[in-house]
């Protein structure tokens, strides 16, 4: 028992200590990232807001993440509904293939997408190419979350709505959509977070306007900028935690609304 507890604590320290260093140095009043700490300051955060190129990168990232979240969720709703409400040949292998990008090395996806965009389609690199690629890697997550939401529904609910005079479309809007809404919010938030954090694909596919992670990577070449990077990292970590917490809360609320037992979430 004692050994197990020690292991659990050591594991958590190993997992979270590096992340805890971010805010520590983001508020440290020194140009060099090293102990001992030398008093608190918020000037790195102030410096952040001064940099026009950083704000551009941030705006870029937000646009890409928001668009990706919407696209991936809309496509995910279509896929999840098709997978749960209908049966067609080869459904199982197809659903398996949809989940495959989850385990493919991202660097390979990035290189092949670069080849596809530039050589095959002859596209210039821009936000559009990043959005397309991010939608691709977010969809497995969206489908996993939404599949759960749709599968939890009794198929008789839709039939009951049809039976009471609604069309397929209005039955979807009046019954299915409200019941899977928590799953939709969950999917939006997860896709948004993944896209916001994603580096490798964005690095390969971004044109003149880098996304925030790519911009941060660029900053690392200048040691003097490190504390600013730490401040930015702190903001991103905080944002990610908030978004994922909301996603989990929505998922649980969805289960409660549908009157179901929690069988362990996606997160």
């Amino acid at each position: 028992m004692r050994g197990l507890r020690f292991y659990a604590i050591a594991y958590l320290v190993f997992l979270y200590a590096p992340i805890a260093l971010l805010p520590l140095f983001a508020f440290n009043d020194a140009d060099i990232i090293a102990f001992p700490l030398s008093g608190g300051t918020t000037r790195w955060f102030a410096e952040l807001t001064q940099s026009a190129s950083l704000l551009d990168a941030a705006r870029n990232s937000l646009i890409i993440a928001a668009t990706t979240a919407v696209l991936s969720t809309v496509l995910g709703v279509c896929a999840a509904r098709a997978a749960t409400m209908a049966d067609w040949p080869l459904k199982r292998p197809m659903m398996g293939l949809i989940m495959l990008p989850l385990v493919l090395p991202e660097i390979i996806v990035a290189v092949s997408l670069l080849v596809l965009a530039v050589q095959v389609f002859g596209l210039g690199l821009s936000n559009t190419t990043i959005i397309a690629a991010h939608t691709l890697i977010c969809m497995p997550f969206s489908i996993a979350v939404l599949n759960g939401a749709f599968q939890n529904l009794d198929p008789a609910l839709e039939e009951a709505a049809l039976d009471l005079g609604e069309t397929r479309l209005s039955a979807f809007r009046l019954v299915l959509l409200p019941l899977v809404m928590p799953g939709i919010v969950s999917s939006l938030l997860i896709s948004f977070t993944i896209s916001l954090d994603e580096f490798i694909i964005a690095f390969f596919l971004s044109g003149a306007n880098p996304t925030m992670p790519v911009y941060i990577w660029g900053l690392l070449r200048f040691p003097g900028q490190l504390p600013v990077v730490m401040a930015l990292g702190t903001i991103l970590v905080a944002l990610s935690i908030v978004l994922l917490t909301i996603a989990e809360i929505m998922r649980r609320r969805g289960l409660k609304r549908a009157g179901l037992r929690d069988r362990g979430g996606f997160l």
Binding site: L162, D163, E166
Partner: peptide, 30 residues
């Protein structure tokens, strides 16, 4: 099924969980 003069009581009852009792009963009157 929406255009037939039939209505059904399902084995699982298929009560809409996000609606109140009155909203469930009045669903067909929409």
């Amino acid at each position: 099924p929406n255009l037939r003069p039939t209505n059904m009581v399902f084995q699982s009852y298929a009560i809409f969980p996000h609606l109140s009792v009155a909203e469930n009963v009045g669903f067909g009157l929409r």
